[in-house]
Amino acid sequence: MNKCHIAYLACAAALLGTGLGAAPSAAGHKVHLVKPGESIQKAVDNALPGDTVLLAHGTHHGSVDVTTPGLTLRGMGRGTVLVPEAGAGATTLPAPTLPTATAGAARATGSCAAAGNGICVTGTKEHGVDGVTIASLTVTGFAKTGVHALEADRLTVRNVTAVRNGVWGIATERSARGVFRGNTARDNGDAGLFLANTVKEEEGASDTGGTVVERNRLEGNRIGVTIRRLRNLTVAGNHLTGNCAAVFVVGDENKPKAGLVTVRENRIERNNKSCPKTARLDALQGSGIVLTGTEDNLITQNVIRDNVGTSPLSGGIVVFKSFVGTPSERNRISDNLLEGNSPADLVNTDPGEGNTFQGNSCLTSKPAGLC
């Protein structure tokens, strides 16, 4: 048992028997303990900026809206599990569909639960929710998303296990300067991690201010991580396996164009699950890293092995013109180790200018000569 877990248990023991308790922390902020069967939402609503809502080990039912800046919502590890209320939007993972305009807009439909999400960090353009942390818990079985954030600045999601949610495991819209570290997203209907400007409107890519996605395990999802219509972020040190596709960096015809994404030092292996075609995207299987309609990205020092499929998007690293006809430009693919990928380790079907392939260790490419 590690020291951190012992500290959590000590805190919980001090509060057990007091109901929905609160105790001062060393910095003057309070810790609000919630035991299974008690209301997480009540604790969150009673908390002040800087407080921690601590979920005890066990199964908690229901969804929760977080609108208080600086709040920490933390469990005691994977054994702290959040599931839907009985009959309130649990999912059996039907065939994946494209997100609708209400997929993440919890407040617009009245609550996080009404939108089919587990934990919602929800701000507005006028009043963002800054500095929230979600940590050390499992969220599973929700119809849409395990953890969803909207207009959240400096959000941290760490050591969260998001499993078998209907659309996304962990997702953000209109958010910046986030940190997503040490999470596990497994067997979700669409992306394990989904970061986007917005799913409701057509607009140019937004600058994330340096969001970091690192040391996560993404397994058995439709797509491991999707970066959609964003600029200025890093995806590093993650392990992606068993997805239909591992990493998608996606843009379109809007301005500013998506790009300035660094994808480095990831292990991307055997992403050979088969996923059917959708209204906007071809069938997926065997895709390592896909760049489509995006610019000025750096793909470097990744290990990409044994991703095999027959989709137009299959291959180790694939540069692909977007489905709306926007070319990818000035992307640098360098110093990656690729082997056993099919139809090829490197695939470039994009007519865009300035895409370069240098220093990669690989055997096959389409067209020939990229290795």
Rank of each mutant, 00 (worst) to 15 (best):
A7L: 10
L9C: 10
L16P: 03
S25G: 14
H29T: 07
V34T: 04
I40S: 01
Q41R: 06
Q41P: 02
P49C: 09
D51H: 09
T52E: 08
T52K: 09
A56K: 03
A56F: 04
H57A: 10
H60G: 06
S63T: 02
D65Q: 13
T72G: 04
L73M: 09
L73G: 04
G79T: 02
T80W: 07
A90H: 14
T91V: 04
T91N: 08
P94D: 00
P94S: 05
A95R: 15
P96F: 15
P99I: 07
T102F: 08
A106Y: 02
G110D: 00
N117S: 12
N117T: 09
C120E: 12
V121H: 02
D130E: 11
T133I: 12
I134K: 05
A135H: 01
V139L: 12
T140E: 04
F142L: 14
K144Y: 03
A149T: 07
A152Y: 02
A152C: 08
D153R: 14
V157I: 15
N159S: 13
V160I: 13
V163Q: 10
I170G: 03
A176F: 04
V179N: 13
R181G: 02
A185D: 11
D187G: 03
N188K: 01
A191E: 07
F194I: 01
E201Y: 08
T211K: 10
V212W: 04
N216D: 12
L218V: 01
L230T: 00
L233C: 06
L233R: 00
T234Y: 01
V235G: 08
G237P: 08
N238P: 02
H239L: 10
L240D: 00
L240T: 05
T241V: 06
F248Q: 12
E253D: 09
K255L: 14
A258D: 01
V263S: 03
N271W: 11
C275I: 09
C275P: 00
C275L: 09
P276R: 14
R280L: 11
D282P: 13
L291W: 03
G293P: 02
G293F: 00
I299V: 14
R305K: 08
V319W: 00
G325S: 13
S328V: 00
E329M: 06
N331W: 00
E339Y: 12
P343A: 08
P343K: 10
A344M: 12
D345L: 01
V347S: 05
G352L: 04
G354L: 11
G359E: 01
G359S: 05
S361G: 06
P367D: 11
G369F: 01
G369H: 10
L370R: 06
